[in-house]
């Protein structure tokens, strides 16, 4: 029983970071209609630059701030240099463009720092002992940061003008243009916001993932799975989906031969796409041509 609880709790911890990645993907899909294949690389940038900076002796708080700002800058750059110039492009072309951006980000990181994994200590050493479970404190950090960020995004979307403008573009770009909201600016804002979420998720994950430039793919895929499980354009669903696949992965790591851990998550992605493409967590499927 304690063992099961252990796997579920560590799963929830990593799942919280997948939730942030998935949330970023869902927000971009909702506002722009584009699946952003570079989202995992935002996470990689946050994690890798934090590990490098902290390893070089920079104060962790400063290192975290620089890493998150760096990820945001790259997110903004992807929008300005790759998405915005493609005027009149259909979604297929925009998605391929984000794939290109992902390739360039990952490749540049590889050329810059090599393939080596970078280890970095937990934010606060120690474990939480509770009912026979030893949970490293880092998992609490991840969970706490994710909770703060998800609440922040919810407040942004419901309580601020920017958030309402984003939602307006998500509902009807043409009509929002009529009332003076620029879909291009909202696209810029949502890419930056998604990169912020990814960057924070990356910083939080750095101590338990030992990042290298190639982790973006796996993390991005977990984000996609989270978002797809929740219904690709449903931000709340993406958060729930992230937690769900975190737990699933925790259980797979505990009870299945290693090596299949990732296959389980990707298998879930395929299974959901084949059976319930609009998401497990959506009760009413929206019929579309």
């Amino acid at each position: 029983m304690a063992e099961l609880l252990q796997h579920v709790l560590t799963g929830l911890g990593t799942g919280a970071s997948y939730a942030l990645v998935g949330l970023g993907i869902a927000l971009i899909v909702q506002v722009t209609g584009v699946i952003n294949f570079a989202q995992g690389d935002f996470v990689m940038l946050g994690a890798l630059s934090f590990a490098l900076l902290a390893g070089a002796g920079v104060h962790p708080v400063l290192a975290a701030a620089i890493s998150v700002a760096g990820a945001m800058a790259v997110g903004a750059l992807v929008n300005l240099a790759v998405i915005a110039p493609a005027r009149g492009a259909d979604h297929t072309r925009l998605i391929i463009l984000t794939i290109g951006a992902s390739i360039v980000i990952q490749g540049t990181a590889l050329v810059a720092v090599g393939t080596k994994a970078r280890f970095t200590p937990d934010f606060t050493p120690g474990e939480l002992r509770l009912a026979g479970v030893n949970l490293p404190l880092q998992y609490l950090w991840i969970g706490g940061a994710a909770a703060v960020m998800v609440t922040g995004v919810w407040l942004l979307l419901t309580r601020t003008l920017l958030g309402r403008a984003m939602r307006a573009v998500a509902m009807d770009p043409a009509a929002s243009r009529l009332v003076g909201i620029s879909p291009r600016r909202m696209s810029f804002a949502v890419f930056t916001l998604a990169a912020l979420l990814g960057g924070i998720g990356g910083v939080m994950l750095a101590p338990i993932q030992a990042p290298d430039p190639q982790i973006g793919l796996a993390l991005g895929l977990k984000g996609f799975t989270a978002a797809v499980v929740g219904g690709l354009d449903n931000p709340a669903g993406a958060v729930a989906g992230g937690l769900l696949i975190g737990v699933l992965e925790g259980l797979a790591a505990g009870y299945l031969p290693s090596g299949y851990k990732d296959a389980i998550v990707y298998g879930l992605l395929i299974a959901v796409l084949l059976t319930r493409p609009t998401g497990l967590l959506r009760t009413i499927a929206v019929a579309r041509v």
């Binding site: 699946i35 998605i95 797809v228 990707y266 298998g267 395929i270 084949l274 579309r288």
Partner: peptide, 20 residues
């Protein structure tokens, strides 16, 4: 199964298929 709904699900599903 995939083409029952429109959207860019094929990109995600084939990505998953390749990795699995």
């Amino acid at each position: 199964y995939l083409f029952r709904v429109s959207g860019h699900y094929l990109a995600l599903a084939t990505l998953g298929l390749g990795l699995v």
